[in-house]
Design a protein around this nucleic acid. Sequence first.
DNA 1: CCGTATTTGTTCGTATGTATT
DNA 2: CAATACATACGAACAAATACG
Lengths: 261, 261
Amino acid sequence: MADPMYRQIADELRQKIESGELRRGAQLPTEIDLREQYGASRNTVRDALRLLITRGLVETRPGQGTFVSERISPLVTTLSNPDTGGSGEVGVYEAEALQVREASAGPVRVEIQEAADSVARELQVKSGATVVSRHQQRFVDGTPWSLQTSFYPMGLVAQGATNLLQATSIDSGTMAYLDEALDVKQAGWRDTLTVRAPNENESLFFKIPSDGRVAVIEVVRTAFDQHGGPVRTTVTVYPADRNQFVFASGDIPPVVDEGGS
Amino acid sequence: MADPMYRQIADELRQKIESGELRRGAQLPTEIDLREQYGASRNTVRDALRLLITRGLVETRPGQGTFVSERISPLVTTLSNPDTGGSGEVGVYEAEALQVREASAGPVRVEIQEAADSVARELQVKSGATVVSRHQQRFVDGTPWSLQTSFYPMGLVAQGATNLLQATSIDSGTMAYLDEALDVKQAGWRDTLTVRAPNENESLFFKIPSDGRVAVIEVVRTAFDQHGGPVRTTVTVYPADRNQFVFASGDIPPVVDEGGS
DNA sequence: CCGTATTTGTTCGTATGTATT
DNA sequence: CAATACATACGAACAAATACG
């Protein structure tokens, strides 16, 4: 009488998934069916399913059913040193897709805000100081992939970097633009990764449960100029169940295809 | 009728925790008390508590009660480029503690194993090939912090690096040792971060719930020698609810103390 | 050491709400 | 609109872990 029943059920289902008996994308029996199959109550079945959800093996869709997650070969995001590989753009997260994947992005939403504590700390300004925020939704193969918001000190605009207020996508070249406009160069950056539960916006956008069963990964990248002052801080949020992050450093060979099992 | 009740309860409790009304380590009202306070059923209260557990705010101890997590200012692990800061040791994860923290480690457990698929892929050997594994438990301030296992191709031992089989802690200098013994130098490395549910060992060691409510972060660091061949792959697992990772690149100023709220 | 009270963990049954088809 | 399937919520009972006299 070792494991509780809900964990036994979860284990059996997990085995069926990993053995391929239940394929990716396939629909699991409904909770009612599982209740009968395992002689458990629906609540117990749901406890088992919650375990599988947390482990990223299945996902539930209200009104539809429970399905084996397609996920697999997680999206790989490279946060490498540009001195290392030839990853051109500095300050842009790049999905290094082993498979062919199509990345797209929503419109840029520009706002003038008062800096929250966390942002103020990164930008080394007073809490509540005025900052420019540029927010964007990103998709890969049409599915929600990340939410990204960049914050710039308002001082940069006052000094002439007025394009920061434009709602056009200059993200791939903002640092180049700042160099050109203000002679501000990016000398380095710092990435901070944190795992936490999603907030309401995030669970809606990523279509992950709102009860925290699936975490999100928050990457805060703060870029510094040649004088050691913070120029920009970018907060990017990814769902944790379908992402991996790679840091490369030094001289290493390119990645070989792995061919997921 | 916006949020479900269990989330409202969780929000109120979260507020009490963040405002300091419930201090770190303090015991929350029992589930029975909360049931009466909020006019909800015990199951609904437990749903709310599960949310807070997942967010790392509280933890439950059977027979005792529910307590505000001590956690706080997460441990920061730097995975930086050595060219950047002066972070001496290459290939060693370093807890950059803003507070004074005491790191310790358990004994090294050396084993000869057949490489699992994931390890074989990283070391670019055939699946099932013989490898040396060196496993260690790590603690910070006496609490479990990480589980680390390094894998080396058996070929290195055959070539003379016999010290790899010794159960003494040479971890901080294994790469230096390999340089000396075999003229193998570390030219670079690749870190891969994945978030997943803990396995049984991990949940026991870290004392986190075994149902996957708290994720773990798995960092796989593979080091490459001057010829681009993999020398070592190190798998380190951290509980996700009390850790942050920092990757610094280029020329950036040192971290300033933040003084948690 | 034992027994009891307390507290969380697991499981059941049931009812109703909400999203999708 | 109806049927289906998951989401939320209630109430109840017993088990297991812990604390304490």
